[in-house]
Design a protein around this nucleic acid. Structure first.
Lengths: 225, 225
DNA sequence: ACAATATTGTGATACACATCACATTTAGAT
DNA sequence: ATCTAAATGTGATGTGTATCACAATATTGT
């Protein structure tokens, strides 16, 4: 699979720092796999032997909590998946599942380690990524534990609209159960809050399609939780 | 301040990988500060110009949440403080405060970056640390959002007994308000649950001193939360 | 097109914990 | 030793959301 990584136009910021020779090495130790919605990309409990890079699509990071599944966060391409669990442990400590069709590059962990050793700019970018995501998790956790359910559900809608799809109309790829697992609310409550938001004219729902009609209201609900 | 780092017997695992020349460089860019209970070691909102290494003592990582302060976790020496916020952002995204007397080494960030570039074994250890702590935060968050208050308070007691002090008798350095901020429970509820645990003979409380009398009961409460 | 499964909606009720106000005790400063 | 501030304890009440059971709708597979 020569030149694929060199010609790839969705390289990570870290991979962009690699020299030709290193890119070539990457190409020989990299395989691209396509996934459909619901496919497991990384499995909690399995051995971690690859670094996964989401080239396009959406995925969800989820773990088994003390009582039920917790959705840690939604990840949007392009980005590395599972860096903490790939390096932090020999066994995957969480799962990553495709939320719709996705393309993932799997890089052999030894080759990745070699690159970490040989290119300090690459390593620096990877470390930056680890730092940023850990900070993000802190804030997410504070929000999840302190906000009330309307605020949390408003956050979900704002995240899909503003950060994932960049549009006020979008097709919600998550079920209400999954939304509930993302913000620690039961699917019945998710249903009720979404219906309430529609009744209040804040959003419009047509099946899975959602339109944000009053973004300021959502922002207010998000803030006041 | 020569030789101090070389002679230090509480080096981090990462620092243990450094060569003599690198250790010397560290010594010239490192200063040790003592803190008392309540002192701010890292301040949310301030510029991050140093890497902090907790040589001994206890500290708490805390952030300002949407409604009130959240205690992210208690850290026990020896370990780096604030790596994610030091590298992830120019401004500290969270605070670290001494929970009792503590000694902290502050390392100039440029010197630290130099070491990251020059010693890949050092960098590898730092990355391992980042990965492990991110995974830990995921699990903490799942526990905080899914467990009920008795389970969470049982967890705190077990953590202080099993991981921080390594003894069934210990002096609780946190107020009930702080315990509440660590597990998202009001101080009134913390008071009630601790009293209940004492009434049930699970723990014995004498002022700030706590004795774990029925560890298995706490484990069960933790699990059944 | 149809059947099976998954997802969502809804109403009634229960539960877990927060909130509030105030009293009491403990710790720290002088 | 005393005073002040912080921390803790307590009772009553309210609130937010979960739970449960079931019906209705949507999606998927054949």
């Amino acid at each position: 699979m020569n030149n694929v990584c060199k010609l790839c136009n969705i390289k990570s910021k870290a991979a962009a720092k690699l020299k030709d020779e290193e890119i070539e090495r990457l190409s020989f130790n990299c395989t691209m796999v396509k996934f459909v919605k619901g496919d497991a990309i990384i499995k909690q409990g399995a051995f971690s032997t690859n670094v996964a890079y989401l080239r396009n699509g959406l995925a969800k990071i989820h773990i088994t909590g003390p009582y039920h599944e917790q959705l840690v966060r939604i990840v949007k391409a392009p980005c590395y998946l599972g860096l903490p669990t790939t390096f932090g442990d020999k066994i995957n400590q969480y799962s990553v599942t495709a939320v719709d069709t996705a393309e993932v590059c799997f890089i052999d962990i030894s080759a990745f380690r070699y690159l970490l050793k040989s290119n300090t700019d690459f390593t620096h970018e990877i470390m930056m990524e680890l730092c940023r995501t850990e900070l993000e998790v802190f804030y997410r956790c504070a929000n999840r534990t302190q906000k009330q359910m309307r605020g949390k559900i408003a956050d979900v809608l704002l995240e899909f609209s503003d950060k994932i799809f960049n549009t006020k109309y979008f097709n919600m790829p998550l079920t209400q159960e999954e939304i509930g697992n993302l913000v620690d609310v039961t699917r019945e409550s998710v249903s009720r809050v979404l219906t309430e938001f529609e009744k209040d004219g804040i959003i419009k729902i047509r099946g899975r399609n959602i339109e944000i009609k009053k973004r300021e209201s959502l922002l207010m609900i998000s803030t006041k939780g």
